[in-house]
Amino acid sequence: MKTILTTGSNGLLGQKITEKVLAEGRVKLVATSKGENRYPAAAGYEYAEMDILDSKQVRDVIERYKPDAIIHTAAMTNVDTAEANKELCYALNVNAVQTLISLCEEKNIQLVHLSTDFIFDGANGPYKEDDAANPLSYYGESKVLAEELFKDSKANWAILRTILVYGITSDMSRSNIVLWAKGALEKGLPINVVNDQWRMPTLAEDLAEACLLAVEKQANGIYHISGKDYMSIADLVRKVADYWALDQSIVTEVTSVGLNQTARRPMKTGFILDKAINDLGYRPHSFEEGLKVVDGQISLES
């Protein structure tokens, strides 16, 4: 059985990988993150503190556990924070990736890296894997720079690009679009939502499954991983309202210009998923099915 090491295991995707491994037992898991373990169960896997900016600690942990594969989920993903703090963004999203690539080359470890639809400018979505990158934000630029490191490396690697990941865990450090919309609507707070940005939201469980499939199938190259439904952010929020029978009258649709976000966002991304479906056996949920999964988990929490 393969041993995989995850970075960023306290995040949403990291916790979903842990959850899936514990439920299915397909691999041995070493979960790593900065600080204490936030996953509620401590048995059935190893946990090690690991700051991806500390290259010596990263080497020590990898040499201790000798994984067959690393799934690298840790990153700065807040687009506006990245725009405001480019130096830290570069350290987390580029330098840390170089550290992992070098170690994986040296020790013959497969490296599965997470990237984003924000490498594209949103002028011609949905996108195929070989479409040209043209990021509009520093976050997108940092992820392009990280991808370029792989193309020059001798490591065994796969890049999984994804879009607008949503889901819920028992201990979350940050929200996501579905939970934000549900929470605001439940409180009856008037919200402004963009109607000219289009995405294919991704259930965290689907992305976790894609990560494990990439390891199991020794995937190599770039794969697009998202949900299968294409919608505007405004449509997404209305679908959330419909699912939980919440009042939509407090939703005001605005354009991207009206929202005045720090970093520019691509207008229409979305992915063509054929490669992941055919090569990995990837089978994403519909958005409605994804909301049902989240709803079931909220019910268990309460």
Rank of each mutant, 00 (worst) to 15 (best):
V165S: 02
P201D: 03
F118I: 04
T162V: 07
I101K: 06
S142C: 09
V94S: 01
K107N: 15
L189I: 14
S175G: 13
E147V: 09
D117E: 14
A146N: 09
A146P: 08
V193S: 01
L136T: 10
F150W: 11
P135I: 13
Y139S: 03
L100W: 06
G188I: 11
L203I: 03
G167T: 05
K151N: 11
L203Q: 02
L114S: 10
M172L: 13
S142E: 04
Y138D: 06
A181G: 09
N195E: 11
L103D: 04
T99V: 15
V178Y: 01
Q110P: 06
T116G: 01
Y166F: 15
F150E: 11
W198L: 08
A123H: 09
V112P: 01
P135V: 13
Y166M: 05
Y127M: 11
W157N: 02
F120R: 00
L136W: 09
S137T: 09
N195K: 15
T116W: 00
P201W: 04
L149S: 12
L149V: 12
A204I: 07
S170K: 15
R174N: 13
Q197R: 06
A158Q: 02
I159G: 01
I168S: 04
E205D: 15
Q110K: 14
L185P: 01
A204F: 03
N134G: 10
R161D: 05
N176A: 02
T116F: 00
A132N: 12
D121K: 09
D152W: 00
P201T: 05
D196C: 04
R174H: 15
Y139H: 08
S173Q: 14
R161G: 03
K187V: 02
K151R: 12
I168H: 08
Q98C: 07
K154G: 12
T162R: 01
N192I: 03
L179Y: 03
A96W: 03
S137R: 06
V97A: 12
F150L: 11
K143Q: 05
A184N: 09
S115M: 09
H113K: 07
A158E: 00
V112R: 00
S153F: 05
T162Q: 03
N176L: 07
L179R: 07
Q110G: 08
K154Q: 13
V193F: 01
N108H: 13
L149G: 13
L185R: 02
G125H: 02
W198P: 00
K182F: 07
A123S: 15
A181P: 06
N156H: 15
E129Q: 12
A155I: 00
D171W: 06
I191S: 02
V112I: 15
V144N: 04
Q197V: 07
F150I: 11
L160Y: 06
